[in-house]
Design a protein around this nucleic acid. Sequence first.
DNA 1: AAACACAGTACCTTTTTGGAAACCATGACA
DNA 2: TGTCATGGTTTCCAAAAAGGTACTGTGTTT
Lengths: 120, 120
Amino acid sequence: MQQNQSAAELMTFRDREYKCGIDVTLALVGGKWKASILWHLAQETMRFSDLQRQFSDTTRKMLTQQLRELEMDGLVNRKVYPQVPPKVEYSLTEQGRTIFPILELMCDWGRNYAQAGNQA
Amino acid sequence: MQQNQSAAELMTFRDREYKCGIDVTLALVGGKWKASILWHLAQETMRFSDLQRQFSDTTRKMLTQQLRELEMDGLVNRKVYPQVPPKVEYSLTEQGRTIFPILELMCDWGRNYAQAGNQA
DNA sequence: AAACACAGTACCTTTTTGGAAACCATGACA
DNA sequence: TGTCATGGTTTCCAAAAAGGTACTGTGTTT
């Protein structure tokens, strides 16, 4: 009497098990920066230094860490131009683009929430 | 040349500032349990003990903590019946229900991702 | 020969989150 | 009188996430 929508199928992702797609999604984009990074990359391909400017309140280390994980998870492309000084461009993969509708809703919902909250 | 969609307006929520609605949304439901809790409550009102059964891999402490925060944030109702043994029912508020479309998308997207990933 | 630009890496510390185990309050019930 | 059920709280500890600072590599320019 408890298997209504997701039934008994467990999902596996990076050696962990998840009962629900929501948890998989959060594992992929639930950190402090990933969703925003994807959102920005959805607007345009960006170099590492562009991202640094956009996310000026984080460190290079955090950015590269998050980008590496997004890349491993197949959501982001990393293109290195063999030149000096280096040039590296980040963009969304096909799969990365499929998450856009969620980000859009999250963006609107959060903004509405903040506005409503401030009026109360 | 950088203000395309969210412009210069900062959002405030619980003494913190956010540049983007996405970050607000993640602050509200981005933890390890909150999104799932909302998802379950969207299906039906539940007593605390029901939630404990559904989330058998977490502790009472975490559950109450998350529920309290969701309540403070206006997403969840807590109704106490004055009887012994106690009976407490949790349900979504109006505002809590507005997040349902996001959760639905997240559920589908995560499930698709997990399936596709397992075939690769 | 020295300095610069870009895109990092390495190492270490701090903060946040999650979790285990024990304790509490109350009225009903045996 | 003692036990049970429900819905918690408290304290302490471990793990994970995030952050700070310094260092690296390499062609090009000065």
